[in-house]
């Protein structure tokens, strides 16, 4: 159930966005980095009463090279696969220290940040454990669809057909041969109170969902498509446009799942062809029409599935409809 505070939250206004910056200029992200932009928006939405547990990855290394830090909020990095576990410890400590009167009682949002490798691959177990245990925290996956920090290797979140340095197209290969793992739905299967997908192109949607996630008690999972000019091979000025096309083609639909109820938050009934999205990116340049068609079919199916989920109203009703 949504607490009253969350129900009262009517959303940020484009003209009155919070001015605070908590990932300050001087960080070392690549030009046009979608992940740095996304985390800037996330922290803007949350304000400074937060503690961040960051997994190893792009955002970790670009923000914390000794002796300087780009963080203006408390932040900790422990390892690659355990952001959700470290966040669990922080949340538990805050809870008990406040209860015992050792620190002052207030609402502090615990935010775990990880990339797609740290989430869909090596960190999946720790994430599942933390969601299942019900810690009051937000987990955000900044999904740039490969291990960009180590030099663009494929992850289980890399889309079908994409070229990476470990899924190279060749005489016998087409690039990535597996379909993107759907971690948002895996998170939803834990029956947590809040799951959402976001993309920094839709900044109000992103900030509103993050804020809502912080107002809900219990675990919230947010999956953020974070376009990456370096790994996806497109001009650094196109990050926002690529994100827009990912949503408009249905490749990355925006939705939220509140208490199991699916709501698509950006219309996906009239979609642009996926080719519009793929052709702007060097990682898909080798794909022929046949493979693009295959991807289109898959996207159509996934979108239809999502629309069906929304129509039935909830996972629960979907399940009932089979009987």
């Amino acid at each position: 159930m949504l607490p009253a505070e969350a129900k009262e939250f009517t959303g940020f206004k484009a003209r009155e966005l919070p001015e605070g910056e908590y990932l300050v200029p001087g960080h070392r992200a690549c030009q046009g980095c979608g992940a740095a932009l996304a985390i800037r928006m996330v922290t803007k939405a949350l304000g400074n009463r937060i503690i961040i547990a960051n997994a190893t990855g792009c955002i970790e290394i670009i923000s914390s090279a000794f002796p300087q830090t780009a963080w203006a909020v408390p932040w900790i990095h422990v390892a690659f696969e355990n952001a959700a576990a470290v966040a669990s410890g922080i949340e538990a400590a805050l809870k008990v220290l406040m209860r015992k009167g050792k620190i002052k009682k207030e609402k502090i949002t615990v935010l775990a940040v990880a990339g797609d490798g740290g989430t869909a691959d090596i960190g999946l177990q720790a994430l599942s454990g933390a969601l299942e245990r019900g810690h009051d925290f937000i987990y955000i996956c900044l999904d740039n669809e490969a291990y960009m920090n180590t030099g663009i290797q494929r992850s289980s979140s890399t889309p079908y057909g994409a070229r990476t340095t470990t899924s190279p197209p060749g005489k016998k290969g087409i690039g990535q041969v597996t379909w993107k793992k759907n971690v948002a739905m895996i998170a939803a299967a834990h029956s947590i109170p809040y799951v959402a997908t976001v993309c920094p192109t839709y900044y109000l949607d992103l900030m509103n969902k993050v804020k809502k996630a912080s107002l809900i008690t219990g675990p919230a999972y947010i999956h953020c498509l974070s376009p990456c000019p370096t790994g996806w091979r497109y001009g650094t000025n196109l990050t926002i446009k690529i994100g827009r096309l990912a949503v408009e083609t249905g490749v990355f639909p925006l939705y939220e799942i509140v208490d199991g109820r699916v709501k698509i938050t950006h219309p996906i009934r009239r979609l642009k062809p996926v080719k519009d999205y793929l052709q702007l990116q060097g990682r898909f340049r080798h794909l022929g029409d046949e493979h693009i068609h295959e991807i289109q079919e898959r996207v159509n199916k996934e979108v239809a599935k999502l629309i069906a989920l929304e129509k039935f109203g909830s996972f629960y009703k979907t399940a009932l409809s089979y009987f």
Binding site: V78, S88, I90
Partner: peptide, 13 residues
């Protein structure tokens, strides 16, 4: 990892 996060927050772990 939980112990690390909790200790960094100031708890006895």
């Amino acid at each position: 990892s939980v112990a690390a996060g909790a200790s960094a927050t100031g708890a006895r772990v």
